[in-house]
Write a protein that binds this DNA or RNA. Structure first.
Length: 579
RNA sequence: GCCCUUGUAGCUCAGUGGAUAGAGCACCGGACUUCUAAUCCGUUGGUCGUAGGUUCGACUCCUACCAAGGGCGCCA
């Protein structure tokens, strides 16, 4: 609990209770950041209303009973009854040491650890990963990391599209090409041309269509040879996905794959259990559930289709099987779905049915972590100039190339190896940060220039701040760990601003986790980098006036760098020591 | 037709019921014999889509409308 605002909030809550008694119960006593002081408390206005008193009088009473001597250098009533707080510098210094010497840099651990399942990335077998998979993968990875950071158990699940009617067509195409040739085409990552080849045959040949349909039946009935060919397709594809994940630097591994096919055996059980519960009804030949509150175009109840007229199951059934599996097998209490915003209604219906069936009882919850599209400069879905989807592979390669050009220009004396490594970190980081740094629910505009810029809210700017700190320690020839118990002396305005910012890591990270919104942490890290850059200009570390001042500033630098590094790390972004 | 999301500076975006709505880019003006100038400091720029309502107080909550995007029965 290093964050002074969090710390003082407890003292204020006590003071409100003392003044207001039971009338203070529903009152928002929150302490907030302020541009008038370090923090402000506004609850006195609401409490005054409840008590029928004047806000300023209440604020004065609150200040009379609030224990703030050891933490605030000033606490005064302002305006209509706001309380402005200024933290004492020695209090800030103590909290900095708490943060510096704590394992998680002052970040509170989760009160009770949860088992969280995160469903994200979800590419399709035998299809290229494209820019559409970027957001799910990057946002999901960041959430995994931050949930783990505060002490949750996180289960990653990559719900790859590895089942369904297209596989008849794909397997027949595989047979036509010959296994060796097909495996080669797939292994080099040319999944699109494989898929297109199959599609073209399917559209152009009736004979092929018949073969494909026959093959689907064989696949679903568990024909050994068909399954062998299917596994070949899946294995080559997942191997390729893994290369992308490694380039991207996300935690997903082969063992995290829980494809649609993994739930096949459960599908009849889902239907049976819904039937046993009396929730299943037959409608136009299909078995469906009508969850309450959903209507179609004609204002009729909207069904979730469990079993199609032809007896097959579809994705709603599979998604319900997922819920059952995640709750009953994994005992997960929080199910996160990092899935595009258009799926909102579908997921709401799945959740509604799962609740009706008793599979998703409070406090277990299912949360749709929805996100918008990646747009091009034309404000339409990002495409190549010729109108094709952009392969993720090509996008990441270009990011590293562009970063390399910038690094070569700005820091030409680096060795080739170092330059390549930094280019990779900067390029990939820029793409991920651009995706993470705006509110996920909105569409965002993809812009190379902006994301690779060293000005503004970009990963290179944050990485640069970190690298500058590392540079100071290299020059000073001081071991980073040696300054971590120094009690800093906060004197300069810029030091104070930086100190305040560093201490907010805890609340910034928690705010981000509670809203599943990585951009909040990005905003914080950008503010941190800005505060540091300003400090750096105004407060010389190596040429400090005194040894005390120097070690104090070194302590502040080290802590800033560690917070920056940890913050970037939970976003899935690396922080190089030089740039 | 119903439902969901979005609408904030010229552009890209932040903004937790609280005081005077903030950044970056762009524009203009400053600061490098200096711990990395890949930076910093300053100026300019707003009917917060529109109109009502709730509230001591609304960019924030509610209602209606406008605009853009998306969803709405056997694809996933």
């Amino acid at each position: 609990m290093a964050d002074p605002i969090v710390y003082v909030a407890q003292r204020m809550a006590v003071a409100f209770a003392k003044v207001g008694g039971s009338l203070a119960d529903g009152i928002d006593t929150a302490v907030r950041q302020s541009d008038r002081a370090d923090a402000q408390v506004n609850g006195s206005l609401a409490l005054a209303k409840a008590m029928g008193a004047t806000p300023r009088d209440i604020a004065i009473k609150i200040l009379e009973v609030a224990e703030l001597k050891d933490v605030c250098s000033s606490a005064e009533v302002a305006g209509p009854g706001f309380i402005n707080l200024t933290f004492a510098n020695d209090f800030l210094a103590r909290e900095l040491v708490v943060a510096s010497t704590s394992e998680k840099l002052g970040v509170r651990k989760v009160a009770s650890s949860r088992r969280v399942v995160i469903d994200y990335s979800a590419p399709n077998v035998a299809k290229e990963m494209h820019v559409g998979h970027l957001r799910s993968t990057v946002i999901g990875d960041a959430l995994v990391r931050m949930l783990m950071f505060v002490g949750n158990t996180v289960v990653r699940e990559n719900h790859v599209g590895d089942w369904g009617t297209p596989f008849g067509m794909l397997i027949e195409h595989l047979v036509d090409l010959g296994e060796t040739n097909a495996a080669e085409e797939l292994s080099v990552g040319d999944l699109d041309s494989f898929y297109r080849g199959a599609r073209k045959k399917f559209d152009g040949s009736e004979e092929f269509q018949i073969r494909a349909r026959t093959r689907v039946v064989a696949l679903q009935s568990g024909d050994a040879e068909t399954l062998r060919l299917w596994k070949l397709l899946v294995a080559e594809s997942t191997r390729y996905f893994q290369t992308i994940y490694e380039t991207l630097g996300v935690l997903l591994q082969d063992s995290d794959v829980m494809g649609e096919s993994a739930y096949n055996a459960l599908l009849p059980q889902v239907a049976q259990r819904l039937s046993d519960l009396g929730l299943l009804t037959n409608s136009d030949g299909a078995d469906v559930v009508f969850p309450e509150g959903f209507t179609n175009r004609e204002n009729q109840p909207l069904p979730l289709i469990i079993r199609k007229t032809d007896g097959g199951y579809n994705y709603a059934t599979s998604d319900l099987a997922c819920v059952i599996d995640r709750v009953e097998r994994l005992d997960s209490s929080l199910l996160l779905y990092v899935v595009g915003a258009p799926q909102a209604q579908h997921l709401q219906m799945v959740a509604a049915v799962a609740k009706q069936a008793g599979w998703l009882q409070s406090p277990r919850e299912m949360v749709h972590v929805a996100f918008g599209n990646v747009l091009g400069a034309d404000r339409k879905m990002l495409k190549t100039r010729s109108g094709d989807t952009i392969k993720l592979d090509a996008l990441l390669t270009e990011a590293v190339e562009r970063a390399a050009a910038a690094v070569a220009e700005k820091n030409p004396e680096l060795s080739a190896d170092t330059r390549n490594e930094i280019s990779r970190i900067v390029g990939i980081g820029a793409v991920k940060y651009a995706d993470l740094s705006t509110d996920r629910i909105k569409d965002y505009t993809f812009d190379w220039e902006r994301m690779l810029s060293f000005d503004g809210n970009t990963s290179p700017y944050l990485q640069y701040a970190h690298a500058r700190i590392c540079s100071i320690f290299r020059r000073a020839n001081v071991d980073r760990a040696s300054v971590r118990k120094v009690i800093p002396k906060i004197e300069h305005k810029a030091e104070r601003e930086l100190a305040m910012r560093v201490l907010q890591f805890d609340s910034a990270l928690w705010d981000t986790i509670e809203k599943y919104s990585p951009h909040r942490l990005c905003t914080y890290l950008y503010d941190l980098a800005s505060s540091f850059s300003s400090f750096y200009e105004q407060c010389s570390v190596l040429k400090a006036d005194t040894d005390d001042q120097r070690s104090s500033r070194l302590m502040l630098c080290d802590l800033t760098a560690r917070v920056m590094q940890a913050g970037l790390d939970v976003l899935g972004i690396e922080a190089p020591e030089q740039m």
